[in-house]
Design a binder for these strands. Structure first.
Lengths: 211, 211
DNA sequence: GTCTATAAAAAGATAGAC
DNA sequence: GTCTATCTTTTTATAGAC
């Protein structure tokens, strides 16, 4: 009994260590650049053990993305206004590898590569990323819907989708800027981005009021 | 003499064929995903010939980026307003592989991967992409400067940089959306993006007028 | 300049002892 | 569950005949 428990705990511990290792590697090297040998070394295990815990590289990344998403859901349940969310996601891009040890932030850094690498079309990890991306988009739309009280339903619906699309494009765009090493003040541009979106909303609501 | 001329022409023709081949492959497969064997096959030449014309894979991509940039400079000398440029670059992202056979459009598709792949840090092709990215940014700033006549110099300078940064983030962001296969109307969002930036400018110029 | 054959290295994956 | 040794495939790159 005691042996069995210890064995199980050891297994979970190793699995977790491998996930942490692949997270750190993937943030720096991307999917193709992360080798199973690297992961094993960083986790302090032989490569054979990695394959004992995970079917293959593809599946390892699928579970990594799921893990990151779980963490994201728990830490991001709270955020309030659109401005706060943009502030968070854009200035976070700038924090480079420092904050990226955190799974929620790392998800995006790893994910963008999956979005762009068309050649990974049949890759299960890429498909998982796209599924999570869609799910997060729905969350963003739902949140936005609650932000325009008093406006008619169809206006609210359209506006919510528009804000979610624009917000996603801006955050993705600034993540690219961070990756490219652009020398800009991300904190300042997070505010500008929010200003821009807010004035779009104001214009649209004013149009509705005039109708 | 005749022989020498024919030889030279044949060489240039092959080199061009290889560049066209790597362009097509790279748009679909990215840097790592494009193999020298693929390129050779697509160009209708054996792999040995590819290495006769280009030192190695890295250098091949450096010359590809240069080639794309040359084409871009020639075709993009004209574009007028910010709205026109956003319209062009954002809706172009949506055109996927169709338009991407064109070097100027392909540059971005290929380049984004270089921006994101941190692990290619010492790669000369990545460095060339970043240099061109910076050069294009300067062009964008210079163009923007001409758009706010009557405003004081410091306001114009700041505004021009801001518009260039935001415009670049938006176009990069929508390129990511296109690569991820997001189901959105790119033409419509190009206009929305322009609206958002224009209202930012209007607000800022109004502030200045009040001072 | 073209083409074939092949070297050399890297990386994913498995076998099997412990 | 861990670890070593090894197989297999892929890919960059070169040698050398033509």
């Amino acid at each position: 009994m005691a042996t069995r428990r210890r064995t199980h705990r050891a297994s979970e511990t190793s699995k977790r260590a491998i996930l942490e290792a692949v997270l750190a590697q993937a943030v720096e090297a991307g999917y193709e650049g992360t080798t199973m040998a690297d992961v094993a070394r960083a986790a302090g295990l032989p490569i054979g053990s990695v394959y004992w815990h995970f079917q293959n590289k593809e599946q390892l990344f699928v579970e990594l993305l799921d893990y990151c998403f779980e963490v994201w859901k728990q830490t991001n349940a709270s955020f309030g206004s659109m401005r706060e969310r943009l502030r968070h996601s854009i200035s976070e891009s700038a924090a480079a590898s420092a904050l990226l040890a955190e799974p929620a932030a790392a998800f995006w850094s790893i994910g963008l590569v999956f979005a762009l690498e068309q050649r990974l079309q049949d890759n299960l990890a890429r498909q998982r990323y796209l599924a999570i991306r869609k799910e997060m988009f729905e969350v963003a739309v739902a949140r936005a819907r609650a932000s325009y009280p008093g406006a008619p339903e169809d206006v609210v619906a359209e506006l919510a989708v528009d804000m979610a699309v624009m917000g996603r494009a801006l955050t993705d765009g600034f993540r690219v800027a961070a990756a490219a090493g652009d020398d800009i003040d991300f904190v300042r541009y997070a505010e500008l981005a929010a200003d821009a979106l807010e004035s779009l909303v104001a214009t649209r609501l004013k149009e509705f009021a005039h109708d």
